[in-house]
Design a protein around this nucleic acid. Structure first.
Lengths: 111, 111
DNA sequence: ACTTTACTCAACCAATTAGTTGACTATAAT
DNA sequence: ATTATAGTCAACTAATTGGTTGAGTAAAGT
């Protein structure tokens, strides 16, 4: 694993360690959105959301395109894939718990 | 998604955002190890490694058992699975086209 | 009994993070 | 031409992070 790959994983996991940013990722999975669109649901300043978006952009998770006075954001999958690939190496530690957890989550969902 | 599940994801991704901690996870995937074992490869104090281990332990990724004067550490899979589950929701963004098509066809076949 | 080993704990430091506000720029609408 | 919208930028704050050192404790080896 190269230094750059390490730095990419650092950035990806770090970007995803914040709930606001994960919510932004979830929102962008439904399609492109502007910064203002993304900021609306959050009880924080536009500047704060802009900073979160910058973290996601720096980590390569989000692509920001300037279009007139709006910034249009798209989700980029490559870094997520790298994170999943890393986690998959330790699959044997969690795969056998699949059924138990699935039942647990299904139960919580129904509550 | 509950507040606790959010906090767990925060903790898991945050714990994994540091290369030293990922290396510890990788080492523990090969089997149980003591704190001193884990600290050996790193160019930092035992205290520093102890702190990293505490972060992993707080996030539930590692189980620490006191045995005499040594601490024995084991990898726990559940939080990793939760992280993978979260990331999997955005699978369509990172899976390569070939795999995505294969999956799509497999799904159609089974229907 | 003494020493070494395997740690923990507290205090400190520098850098980073997540948020704020106020001032600014650029674009679009009226 | 004026005004409203979308966003940036700089400065500030409080909390957290990743590291250090030095002192202390508890268990094991000699």
């Amino acid at each position: 694993m190269t230094v750059q790959q390490m730095a990419q994983l650092d950035a990806t996991f770090s970007a995803l360690s914040d709930g606001t940013r994960r919510a932004i990722v979830a929102r962008l999975a439904d399609g492109e959105a502007t910064l203002s669109d993304l900021a609306t649901p959050f009880d924080m300043s536009l500047t704060a959301v802009s900073k979160h978006l910058r973290v996601l952009s720096d980590a390569g998770l989000v692509d920001i395109e300037k279009r007139g006075r709006t910034r249009h954001c798209r989700l980029r999958g490559a870094p997520i894939k790298e994170a999943v690939d890393w986690l998959s190496k330790y699959e044997s530690f969690w795969i056998d718990r699949f059924d138990a957890l699935a039942r647990h989550l299904a139960k919580e969902d129904s509550e």
